[in-house]
Amino acid sequence: MLQFVIRRVISGIILVAVVSSATFFLAHLAIGDPTIGLLGSSATQDQMASLAAKIGTDRPLIVQFFDWAGHALTGDFGDSWRNFQSVSSQIGLKLPVTLSIVTFAILLTAVFGALLGIATGLRPGTVVDRVLQWLSVILFALPGFWVALVLVITFAVNLKWFPAVGYVQPGTSFSGWLRSLALPGISLALGAVVMVASQLRNALVETSQLDYVRTLRSRGLSNARVTLHMVRNAAPTSLTILALMFVGLLGGAVVVEQIFALPGIGALTTASSQNGDIPILLGITVVTVAFVVLVNLVLDLLLGWINPKARQS
């Protein structure tokens, strides 16, 4: 197991290095001279030259790369080119917001996806099952931003149950924090819930036809215990989907953060791209790739815990 973890960590580090290096060169290629974007439309030539000297873009690109990479290895991602504050501190402010939304959405997805998946998987062909099938198609087809807008107009603008925009820190008000996460979390989770439920339902239907289930029933095990065995067997597929969703929702959060005006990584990414703030973009890239690696590692460990065969493979 330890070897497995070490192997995954090393491959993860290589992935982070390759992706962030590629991002460095692609970002510089795409943005070109960032000083105008950073200073705004009224910038003078003198201001642009002065900023270029300050942020070091007047040096050859390869020199800039090794400078950035050298500092990044020590965990120093430099300062934002726009407001000259440390990249790490800015990502540190925004990341908890995005993680809150995504984690809330994943929790909703896991709980409701599992409940619906088990309910329908154990009784395929029932009305509930058919409704879920239809719902899956509809919710999966609906664009996330549209769902979010409908939720805002209904529950924030008309009913005023939840805020239309903004984020409350849990330390300021825990209930306020939950209320600020509710609509963005539900917007992200709706499509994911039906997908996980569908996967779990199909896996359970397949599992219920396996020999060992019949054997367990013939030995007189209670329905609850048989179900537990079936769920454990069917769980890996849903867990994999859930992990993929976590990564996918990090991207989906960009849109949701915009609609609900949440100060997360998505909003920071959009603003940095528009402004040509490359250090922030690079910092976000490293953090995001590191998260993807981490989530996959946790998934592998979980799958190994559920199914020892997976550990050996």
Partner: peptide
């Protein structure tokens, strides 16, 4: 003061009385 980049989000916030 709330920074809200998206015009629709600002309109929703105005209609819901948040701004």
């Amino acid at each position: 003061i709330q920074p809200i980049q998206d015009a629709n989000a600002r309109a929703n916030a105005m209609q819901s009385g948040q701004i």
